[in-house]
Write a protein that binds this DNA or RNA. Structure first.
Length: 508
RNA sequence: GGGGGCGUAGCUCAGCUGGUAGAGCAAGGGACUUUUAAUCCCUAGGUCGUGGGUUCGAGUCCCACCGCCCUCACCA
């Protein structure tokens, strides 16, 4: 990093120096390098659609605005491509048509924001173009964007070279977005998906709510929290790791269908599928159960995939993911038993560890697994990699699910499912435990695990128990990782590709 | 945190077994009134991630550190 923002001139590149010199020259012409406003008549795409070849050299008058994405000076004329959020349009500058403004055109750089008005025509080479009659500088770019050369082809814009370093792309997302229209498209798609989910739930009578992000007790998931401090109350507060316990309090209060879309914060490792803050959709529906949630899931996830990808069958990594309902269900205990030959609820723990070691887990590690953790490791080793097609993994052991209702037919299990797509967990849902005394016992069990060193065991939440004592209707609830959903929808390999500003170590 | 890889001009990259840096694009000057990866001529631009070490000599070899990527672990 030789040139830092606002650094001394000695630290700036010659490119930046030259742009600042042009900025000064523009000011000397009495022109503002950073304008206040521009009334554009059409976006690039709208303007292009306006032209008809019968109009010849004198098409309609348009005023377009955008960033200069290509600039070709040619003596007393020049061509530029303006890029706005709709696309690109070419602009043709002529000295004899611009008069005094020609001086300004000479001082334009790639990446400047400009507004151009003029008539549309088609060039010899066939491109619909604005013949500039007036040019307004809207914002001088003092730092060149890391863009490559581009070629406008019939099937889109082809780039040669350009910003490729993933570090710069994530740290300077503004630059990444500015030079990569396809990245802008990812985040449009993200917004479309979230809007679709809201519309879907609103149409089903769900109420969108907001619950605390700063919580005196964190719960609803197993994870280490971020801790902060409230000065006025002089007490620690935790950034939520889940919305669950607050949303279920609302069921007690008579809000029968609620959902929340917001960030959860988990103080854990970061990798391709984990960012410390991520977007979660949680929803709860009174008088439903996990069966109801599976149906809802098929409609909702299948629907959003279809809305974003145009089909419920999408091609990912050479396989077709088929979101057409119904989706297969695999029972947690039976699924493992079919592959490992043991019942994880009743098998001797030493035998389970031996199976894990035979499966490739290191002996030292396996020795540390016990209880619910051991069962989960068995799942990861024997079952998870097979869950590529949308699949419900159902009926988890009780030890793994302290907030889920016991299975109606088998007291060792809970009515819980997770949806897996591409081998990754996308949704977690259950029939919500609404017996306050059993919930109390589950919390006490978690407290014991905590005392035994499990940092992620859930905290005893007395206020939540009090709420349940008032009576919570039976309900189904569901949580879905929005970022991971977007990874499925876009086919992008890293959660950082679908989060605008992913967490990064600080620079310098 | 373990293992592997990478870090050279604004951007994309070369740089063989050590002999103190190259290209294309971008930039500056010039030519060019329908070009589109415009073209042609000329010019400038780099403490090779940081700090040590080995060596007569380090972009290159060694060590440490910083950052990123991949992978494993953690994340039910």
């Amino acid at each position: 990093m030789t040139s830092l923002p606002g650094g001394a001139s000695a630290e700036r590149s010659h490119v930046e120096e030259s742009r600042r010199a042009k900025r000064d020259a523009i000011e000397a012409l009495g022109i503002l390098p950073f304008a206040y406003r521009f009334e554009r008549s059409h976006t690039a795409l709208e303007a292009l659609a306006l032209y008809d070849d019968r109009m010849g050299e004198d098409g309609p008058l348009v005023a377009v605005a955008g960033r200069i994405a290509a600039l070709r000076s040619q003596g007393k004329t020049g061509f530029a491509h303006l890029e706005d959020s709709s696309g690109r349009i070419q602009v043709y500058f002529r000295r004899d048509a611009l008069g005094a403004l020609w001086e300004l055109v000479q001082l334009l750089d790639l990446d400047d924001h400009v507004g151009v008005s003029g008539r549309l025509f088609r060039t010899r080479t066939g491109e619909v173009t604005v013949r500039a009659e007036a040019v307004t500088l809207l914002a001088k770019s003092l730092r060149p964007l890391p863009r490559g050369k581009t070629q406008v082809a019939e099937d889109g814009v082809q780039t040669f070279g350009g910003l490729a370093d993933p570090e710069v792309r994530y740290r300077q997302r503004y630059a990444d977005l500015a030079v990569h229209p396809e990245v802008r498209e990812v985040f449009r798609l993200r917004a479309r998906a979230i809007a679709w989910l809201r519309a879907f739930l609103d149409a089903r009578g769900y109420l969108e709510v907001e619950t605390p992000i700063l919580q005196p007790l964190y719960g609803g998931a197993a994870a280490r929290p971020f801790v902060t401090h409230h000065n006025a109350l002089d007490m620690p507060l935790y950034l939520r790791i889940a919305d669950e316990l607050y949303l279920k309090r609302l069921l007690v209060g008579g809000l029968e269908r609620v959902y929340e879309i917001g960030h959860d914060f988990r103080n854990e490792g970061m990798d391709r599928t984990h960012n410390p803050e991520f977007t979660m959709l949680e929803l709860y529906e009174a008088y439903s159960d996990y069966e109801g949630m599976m149906q809802l899931c098929e409609e909702m996830v299948g629907g959003v995939v279809e809305a974003c990808c145009g089909s419920r069958r999408i091609e990912r990594d050479g396989t077709t993911l088929d979101f057409t309902a119904p989706w297969p269900r695999v029972r947690f205990v039976e699924g493992i038993r079919e592959r490992a030959g043991v019942d994880v609820r009743t098998a001797d723990e030493a035998d389970l560890r031996r199976l894990l070691v035979r499966r490739g887990v290191s002996a030292d590690e396996a020795a540390t697994f016990a209880g619910g953790k051991l069962q989960d490791e068995m799942f990861k080793a024997f079952l998870e990699p097979e869950l590529v097609q949308p699949t419900f993994l159902v009926d988890y052991p009780v030890a793994l699910s302290p907030l889920a209702k016991r299975h109606r037919d088998d007291a060792t299990l809970t009515e819980r499912f997770e949806l897996f797509v591409g081998g990754k967990e996308l949704v977690n849902a259950f029939s919500e435990l609404n017996d306050p005394d059993e919930q109390r016992r589950r919390f006490e069990d978690q407290a014991q695990q905590r005392a035994a060193g499990n940092e992620e065991a859930q905290l005893y939440d007395a206020d939540y128990i009090r709420a349940l004592e008032y009576g919570m209707p039976p309900a189904g609830g569901l949580g879905m990782g929005i970022d991971r959903l977007l990874m499925v929808i876009t086919g992008l390999p890293s959660i950082r590709d679908v989060i605008l500003f992913p967490a990064m170590r600080p620079e310098s």
